[in-house]
Design a protein around this nucleic acid. Sequence first.
RNA 1: AGGGGUAUAGUGUUAACGGUUAGCACGUGGGUCUCCAAAACCUAAAGUUCGGGUUCGAAUCCUGAUACCCCUG
Length: 314
Amino acid sequence: MNSQKKSPLISVVGPTASGKSDLGIALAHRFNGEIINCDSVQTYKGIYVATAKVPPEEQQGIPHHLIDIVEPTYNLTAVEWAERCKDVIADIESRGKLALLVGGTGFYLRALTTKFFDSPEIDENLRPRFQRILERRGVEHLHKMLARVDPPLAAKFAPKDWSRVIRALEVYFSSGKPLSKWQADTPEEPTEEAARIFYLVLEPPREQLYDRINRRTDLMVERGLLTEIQELIASGVPPTAKAFNAHGYKRFVEYLLGQRTLDSAIEQMKLDTRHYAKRQWTWWRAQSNTFWLQGFGFDDKVIEHAIRIVETKL
RNA sequence: AGGGGUAUAGUGUUAACGGUUAGCACGUGGGUCUCCAAAACCUAAAGUUCGGGUUCGAAUCCUGAUACCCCUG
C-alpha cells in the first residue's frame, strides 16, 4: 500500500431510515474514524425529535461533527457546508484518523466533490421580493422575467420550476450577469475530494423501509414532536424558519396554524418521508463510485460487507 | 324475502350532450438536479364489474348476472 496516497473518504449514504448512522458508527469503531454529518436537517440547532440525530449518549464515544451548527432561522448553503466540511476533514486527518461522511443530503456531497462556479454576492433582499412576486403573480411571471434576462437558462428550466428560476434571477439581479454566463465562464470541475471519495449506498427492501419510516414517524409524534415545535415557536422561532422545512416540522406547523388536522399532518409526514427516500435512491443511482449494500445499516451482514469494501480501499 | 339505488385505474371523482386517444386529483414507478436539496421540478404505467342486446358508434340506452348500500319485513 502506497503511504504517500491520500486516505480515502468513506461516505455512508442512502435513503432516510436505512440505518446510515449505525453503519457509520460501526465503521468508525473498526477503522478509527470520526463521523461528519452530511444531512442538511441535522445541521440545525433546536430541532431534535424528528431529525434522527444520534443523541450524544448513543454516539459510543465516536466524535460527530457538523451537527447543531446553525440557528433554526439560518440558511446554510451547500457550498458553505462543503467549506466547513473540508476544514473538518483536514482536522480529522491531521490527527491520523479516518473521515466518515454520513448522511442523506446527496447535494451536499456534490458540493464537496465538485467546484461550483464562483457565485457573486447575493443581495439578500431579492429572494423575499421574488417570493412575493411568485405568490401574487405566479410562476409564469417569474419565468418570463428570466426569459428576458437569461434566455438560455429559461429555456432549460421547466416553467414551473420556481426554485431554480428564483436562484437564477437572484444571480442576475445581484451581479448584472446572467447565471448561464457565470456557469459558462467557470465550468464546474471535480475537487481534490472527488478523487478519493466513495459511497456505500444502503438499499434495504423498499417495503421494509417504508414500514420503518411509518413506524418511526408515529414514534416521533409519541416522543413529543408537537411539544418541541410549540416550545420553539414560544421561544421566538418564527413558523417560517428554515429548520421547519424538515419533514414532520413542516406539516405540524401547518397543523398548529390550523391549516390541517393532526391525522393529516401525521399521514402527510409519512408520505413526505417516503417520497424523499425514493428520490434519494434515484440520486445515488446516477452517481459513480458507489457500492450498493442490500439491507439496513444495522444488519451484521451489511456491516461485514461494508468493512470488506473499506479494507480494499485503505 | 320484497322494493329502490349505485357500480369508471390502487383510492376518490357533484370528468365525459350516445360521437376525437375515457379527463382530473391523490397514490405508485422512473427521472432531473451548478449555492434553500428533508427543496423544486419532469415523466410513465394503470380504468369503464361480468355477459347479452339496440346503434354507423355505448362508460352512457335496454336486459340478465354479480357485488355493495338504503328502505320494508
